[in-house]
Design a binder for these strands. Structure first.
Lengths: 236, 236
DNA sequence: CCAGTATGAGTAGCATGCAACCGATTTTGC
DNA sequence: GCAAAATCGGTTGCATGCTACTCATACTGG
């Protein structure tokens, strides 16, 4: 049986709508938007929109200025660096623990997700690739049995996604990432916790480096070195 | 000059009020409360109360049930274990980085905060001790220059505080904790990053063990061993 | 021509009205 | 006497009205 959807509240629906609009680039950083306009466009009243904006503000995705509308935050490279510093600390040990906790059925599912990701990756569809990547990672992290960790990592990912279309992977780098992931997958299947830990660290680190380089490349006068070096500040 | 307070919004004021009421034990887990009652007690309308409750729900502190009022969540031992698993992963490296980043002035401030904490600790005032502890930790973490990390750890701490009056330290254990902290402080003053990292890990771990034991001791039929062993699941 | 003021358009913050909904109790029908 | 249905008190979810505020522009006085 399906777990019956208890009619998600309007506030929540609006939250996901707005988040999607930001990720898709429909709402862009820097611009101002009014809660009134959004509510009219969505056909709801101002209240749920206002509440949704407050929740998104808590996530750091938007800023609401008193009587001046809402602004989509320009996620800075510094923010991205912070996010990945944290992910680098949190995800590798979680991966190791996940390997220890995984059942055979879990391994099977992971294998499927991994396979799916490869297929999607070959199509070159950036958005779908990210989606598949997210699914794989979150399932793996879920095995570590720490719900708060899942929530935190999910939010951190959202923050990066909100940066915009940053994340469309390049062909060559995406090749590298696939390699990392194979390594990770191998360690998992061999039930090798510390191998998984290391592989995960490499993978997240490379993802971060790719992102930083991509952003710097498109933003003139930005030097990637200082950012790249800061990525590893929290791992010793 | 004082940075002028731009009139905190009612919603935010209510949020902190409710949070304080929970921490102080004025609002207890399990019981039901109505937004209407809260709004009347605080002399505001239902709207800011409702919005505050949504924010607190996102933090995991309360649950709002449709048409049935709001319930203060009973933070379980499992939750506490999760929180400390995360803190154990995140705070030690942050402490190490903090040592590397600290200026002489920072060290001076830390020394002061540390001293203050010892003084307050001797008075036996549990609440004040926690407050001083929080100040010290958050200042130290702030030196790692990762705002998101600060935010996350702050929220995790709040969650534990919301568990209730759990956290009134016992005389003997609080002695032990002071020892840990001295160790930590020494490593910081010697500008020894990995020493600080280890000391921080010991300190957080012992805090967690103390907490778990305290909760188990007062809850009949609860075995602390399984919880204690899970604390270290994420560190290898 | 310009400094300083007045005006107006637009906004969010909050209060409040209303309907839908939930759970417990009472009433009804058999 | 008992099961099922109607009722009722209490609650949230959402819509909407109003006020105070911000910013930009137009206006006024010199």
């Amino acid at each position: 049986m399906q777990p019956i959807l208890p009619k998600e509240s309007l506030t929540d629906q609006v939250t996901t709508k707005i988040r999607a609009a930001i990720v898709s680039g429909e709402m862009t950083p820097g611009n101002h938007y009014s809660a009134i306009a959004i509510s009219e466009k969505l056909g709801v009243s101002r209240t749920p929109v206002r509440e949704a904006l407050q929740l998104l503000e808590k996530e750091g995705i938007v800023t609401v200025a008193k009587n001046r509308g809402v602004r989509v935050n320009q996620i800075s490279l510094d923010d991205i660096v912070e996010v990945f510093q944290l992910r680098l600390v949190v995800e590798p040990p979680a991966a190791a623990r996940a390997v220890l906790n995984a059942s055979e059925a879990d391994l099977e599912i992971l294998r499927e997700l991994h396979h799916e990701m490869i297929l999607v990756g070959q199509t070159g569809d950036g958005r779908a690739t990210l989606e598949a990547d997210k699914k794989f990672h979150l399932y793996l992290l879920g095995l570590a049995r720490n719900a708060k960790l899942d929530g935190i990592v999910g939010e951190l990912r959202n923050l990066v996604l909100a940066h915009g279309q940053v994340t469309i992977p390049q062909a060559r780098t995406s090749q590298d990432l696939a390699g990392d992931r194979d390594e990770l997958m191998n360690a998992i299947l061999k039930r090798d916790p510390s191998g998984a830990q290391i592989a995960m660290q490499n993978h997240v680190l490379r993802t971060a480096q790719m992102l930083v380089r991509a952003v710097c490349a498109r933003t003139p006068g930005l030097n990637d070195e200082q950012y790249l070096s800061r990525l590893e500040e929290l791992i010793f």
